[in-house]
Computed example of a mutant assay.
Amino acid sequence: MTDRTYTLNTGAKIPALGFGTWQSAPGEVASAVEYAVTHGYRLVDGAYCYGNEDEVGQGLKAAFAKGIKREDIFVVSKVWTTYATRVEEGLNKCLKSLGLDYVDLFLVHWPLLMNPNGTDDRFPKLPNGERDIIRDYNHIDGWRQMEAVLATGKTKAIGVSNYSKKYLEELLPVAKVVPAVNQIENHPALPQQEIVDLCREKGIHIMAYSPFGSTGGPLFTAEPIVEIAKKHNVQPGTVLLSYNLARGSTVLAKSVNNARIESNKTIVDLDDEDKAKIDAYSAQLTKEGKLQRFVYPPFGIAFGFPDKP
């Protein structure tokens, strides 16, 4: 499964299955990355905000020492919101931690600016405890800086993350470089079809995170997922990963457990009946107003998602 790829609007190949590192505990990330990369994964997704890129870099270094070639691994990182006005500095920090000369894809993590001179490098807060956000920031200005770092060669491609249809429609008419990727939370309880359709139309590849919903896999027990898993004699997680591939998206699977890292490589081809059953489930949740977005930090900004007015 790990050798399947898609082609980005840059012409580069991106793996269909990636290894995620968000919320991986300190002391576990390096060995998990090393194991994943030496056991077939060819995409590693990280971010400065995760606070573990030093360990991701250690894991990559260990894998390279075992004969894995740097050019065979697609490395993703993201500029955090406190660096939205100093993107190259943010990218340089990521590269230093990762021990790399370049990343294959650099993303805008969220389209906002938190105070770069605030109380914390990642999560500056106001005296009342709220996040210290610069309210007059325009995300298009941040994209101009992303376009500038693309020219440095320190990243092979640029893209966005957590962009709604509304924000994309603001960006695309003025972007000199169309984002290669939009990384979004995507699963049957949050299909975000309006974003997927727009990205498909504009040649922007979808990378899906939190395919199981969130920690603990709340979607593992969803009735249609269980039924389809039984039909194919696989685990519910396999169905949820396969759902995203059936939509033509790259999907990120995260674990620090070697057995689970292996099992997440199992993908099945969902047939039309399977896809119709999952789509009906998503449609019913939409109709009932029960869509579930598991990742939505308390920024206090309306990003234009229909489920988060």
Score class of each variant (00 low, 15 high):
residue 147 E to G: 02
residue 162 N to A: 12
residue 167 Y to R: 13
residue 141 D to N: 13
residue 151 A to T: 04
residue 163 Y to A: 11
residue 136 D to K: 14
residue 136 D to H: 11
residue 146 M to Q: 02
residue 150 L to A: 10
residue 154 K to A: 07
residue 148 A to R: 08
residue 146 M to G: 00
residue 158 I to G: 04
residue 148 A to L: 06
residue 164 S to E: 04
residue 143 W to A: 10
residue 160 V to K: 02
residue 156 K to G: 02
residue 155 T to I: 09
residue 144 R to L: 11
residue 161 S to M: 06
residue 145 Q to Y: 08
residue 166 K to I: 01
residue 155 T to R: 05
residue 146 M to P: 02
residue 153 G to W: 05
residue 152 T to F: 13
residue 151 A to P: 01
residue 151 A to M: 13
residue 141 D to G: 02
residue 161 S to P: 08
residue 166 K to Y: 11
residue 138 N to V: 04
residue 139 H to M: 11
residue 147 E to S: 05
residue 152 T to D: 03
residue 143 W to R: 00
residue 165 K to D: 12
residue 153 G to R: 06
residue 161 S to L: 04
residue 147 E to R: 03
residue 161 S to I: 01
residue 138 N to K: 13
residue 148 A to C: 08
residue 157 A to C: 10
residue 164 S to L: 02
residue 140 I to A: 05
residue 135 R to D: 03
residue 167 Y to S: 09
residue 152 T to H: 05
residue 150 L to R: 07
residue 165 K to L: 09
residue 155 T to V: 15
residue 137 Y to H: 12
residue 135 R to F: 14
residue 155 T to W: 15
residue 146 M to I: 00
residue 161 S to G: 11
residue 150 L to H: 03
residue 164 S to D: 12
residue 143 W to G: 01
residue 153 G to H: 03
residue 143 W to S: 11
residue 159 G to W: 10
residue 135 R to M: 07
residue 142 G to E: 08
residue 152 T to S: 13
residue 136 D to C: 06
residue 146 M to K: 00
residue 151 A to F: 01
residue 162 N to Y: 12
residue 157 A to M: 11
residue 141 D to L: 09
residue 138 N to A: 04
residue 136 D to L: 02
residue 145 Q to D: 13
residue 135 R to S: 06
residue 141 D to M: 02
residue 137 Y to Q: 05
residue 156 K to N: 12
residue 139 H to S: 03
residue 137 Y to G: 06
residue 167 Y to F: 09
residue 141 D to P: 06
residue 153 G to M: 10
residue 148 A to S: 11
residue 152 T to A: 08
residue 135 R to A: 06
